[in-house]
Design a binder for these strands. Sequence first.
DNA 1: GTAGTAAGTTGACTTGCATCAATTTGGATG
DNA 2: CATCCAAATTGATGCAAGTCAACTTACTAC
Lengths: 251, 251
Amino acid sequence: MAQPIRFRQAASPLKASCQQCSLSNLCLPLAVEENDLGRLEEIVQQGRIYNRGEHIFDQSTPFRSCFAVKSGSVKTSIITEGGEEQVTGFFMPGELVGLDSMSGDAYACTAKALERTSVCEFPIDKLEELTGKLPDLQHHMFRLMGQEIQNSHQLALLLSKNTAEERIASLLLSLSSRFQRRRMSPTNFSLPMARNDIANFLGLAVETVSRVFTRFQNQGIIHARGREVELLDVEALQLVTREFSRQSCQQ
Amino acid sequence: MAQPIRFRQAASPLKASCQQCSLSNLCLPLAVEENDLGRLEEIVQQGRIYNRGEHIFDQSTPFRSCFAVKSGSVKTSIITEGGEEQVTGFFMPGELVGLDSMSGDAYACTAKALERTSVCEFPIDKLEELTGKLPDLQHHMFRLMGQEIQNSHQLALLLSKNTAEERIASLLLSLSSRFQRRRMSPTNFSLPMARNDIANFLGLAVETVSRVFTRFQNQGIIHARGREVELLDVEALQLVTREFSRQSCQQ
DNA sequence: GTAGTAAGTTGACTTGCATCAATTTGGATG
DNA sequence: CATCCAAATTGATGCAAGTCAACTTACTAC
């Protein structure tokens, strides 16, 4: 083994290489010019690896950093005073976690690793300093936050207007396209989250999620076995999500 | 009348004065130092006045500006392909409308004046340019957008976990505190929106909203007559919003 | 004024999903 | 391989809120 090289890497173990990262077309580097990438690398810290169930940060603790998922997946949720939990999002490699906390001094939610997960950490004060210098990066941050607002509005729409079947079909299609963008099969994937998380996220009871999964399976739309899911008829799924609108148009 | 002065004003009729604005402690000027206020004034445009029902911007049209409500109030909503509407927010004086559209080239929602309303317009390209120069303003924008994400998550929580009574109590309390921050009575105000908008926003049927209002009235918690609302027992309302959590603690 | 329309209220009935309860499956551990 | 506990499934039942329909009130315009 090339000792000198290992030694050099060990000398700054916390630095990550955005240039060599395979996610550079999804993550923050996407918005940074080639010759500015070094400045992004200067502020990013290689986070540690989290095992399934470990917390990356906790609601109400001091807000210090946003985190980009490098591998694995993350779920965020808010907890009410009464101990009620609401899952607010699932995050895949390349996606940025913690944007909702930019409004205050404490994290607005809790982030939990759904599986063995590694992240890159962006200290928020340094990130803000850099966005002030790189207009493209600032623009990208605004875009990401705007997208986050939209996602949440879409979730609200789903929760207030759609049936259990429509909600679950929407989630499956969302996961599908996100897997696809990461060069994984859009029809054959493993759910990173438990039925419980799906239910909580979609405002349903676990039993309802289970029932809808078996109903979809009986209709030949999907094949599900535990967390392994195969989408057999994507068009049918898309049709389900539009069921509601079709009805209101037909009358 | 002092003709010369009127003439001077007419020479730049589109400029607004942030320094003299009574909302400067709520709106964007909040984050700008005294001697930088001029730079904000340079980019802000005095928008026109909108009558009830008029659109300030429309979903899918090119995204150009964010708007600060100056007087009156605004509702935003997204429309699905099927024509389904979901109200995503109500905006009061000093609040910034359009942040969710920062993610793309087109407005992500439609903004409609709920009453006679005036706004200030911030062209987005100029605003981004300025935030790049004023770190405090950039920080404030991040805060506002983070807050918007959180609001939306709170709405999702409300929609997925709370009963009709809890949702309506929450909305009334939210309006109450927002009126208070604007130095208006927190217990005696006029709802800017119709029952229909409340129902849509909270994922309920109009009939349900109506029933809950009368139920609250019979319990002596509120007094409502049309859009005029008086909160008679704020503590009782707060209790309603925590009803759910109280139950899960008792068991 | 009065006609006309939209907004709001109230009641009767229906339903999708939650809840409760009982199994079954699966993964982890010694 | 057996044990244990959490996760997932399936069935039976109840209820909160939706839907449909009738009526009242408020607003606008002529």
